Amino acid sequence: MLDKDNKLHFFIPSFDNGTELPYISEGIKAGFPSPASDFEETKISLDSFLIKNKEATFYAKAIGNSMTGAGIDNGDILVIDRSLEPSDNKIAICYIDGEFTVKRIKITNQKLFLQPENDSYKPIEVLEENEFMIWGIVTYVIKKMIY
């Protein structure tokens, strides 16, 4: 997350206190209701579900609205895996010229762009003179439902 000095803070998942909660593995229908007796309850730990490589996984809080079209809203928690290979069309945490940003990777005509998912923002072309690194790939977005 960004603090008052505009610095991004990453959080390392804690596996010491994982909590297993009831989980309906067959899913909940978003269409017509299904009798509750059809569901068999099991247990799940969200840490185990969301994190495949715990040594390379971090959380960060999204700030801003440049990625709303990709389902990433201000305040969402991003699950970032640094062990995944970056490629075209993946959403990545990128470090460019001293700042972190979350954008979609776009490769066209041998050029690299950091593509926002909001028409109010312009793509960022990554040039040779930029200090640039793809820091990790976003694997999940955790969001709070607003009521």
Rank of each mutant, 00 (worst) to 15 (best):
G98F: 01
L112D: 06
V126H: 00
Q115E: 10
Q110A: 01
I124H: 11
I107S: 02
Q115C: 07
V126K: 09
S87W: 04
Y121M: 12
S120R: 13
Q115S: 05
S87E: 07
W135I: 13
Y95C: 03
I107E: 02
N109E: 14
W135R: 02
K106W: 06
E129I: 05
K106A: 15
G98Q: 02
I96C: 08
F113T: 08
N130T: 08
F113H: 12
Q115Y: 08
T101S: 14
I134A: 13
L114T: 08
P116D: 07
I107G: 07
V102P: 11
E125N: 02
G136R: 02
S87A: 13
Q115H: 07
Y121N: 04
C94H: 05
E129N: 08
L127W: 05
Y121L: 10
R104Q: 10
E99M: 13
L127T: 13
D119T: 15
K106H: 08
E128H: 11
D119V: 10
P123T: 11
N130F: 03
P123W: 09
W135A: 09
N109K: 13
T101M: 14
P116V: 13
Y121K: 07
E117A: 10
E125C: 00
M133K: 10
S120H: 12
N130C: 10
V102W: 10
I107H: 04
N89F: 02
N130A: 11
K103C: 06
N118D: 02
Y95A: 04
I96P: 03
S87Q: 11
S120W: 09
E131Y: 04
M133Q: 06
Q110R: 09
Y121Q: 06
S87N: 10
N118W: 07
K103T: 13
E99T: 14
P116M: 12
T101K: 10
P123L: 15
S87G: 14
N109D: 11
I134H: 07
M133H: 06
N89M: 03
I91T: 02
D88M: 00
I93A: 14
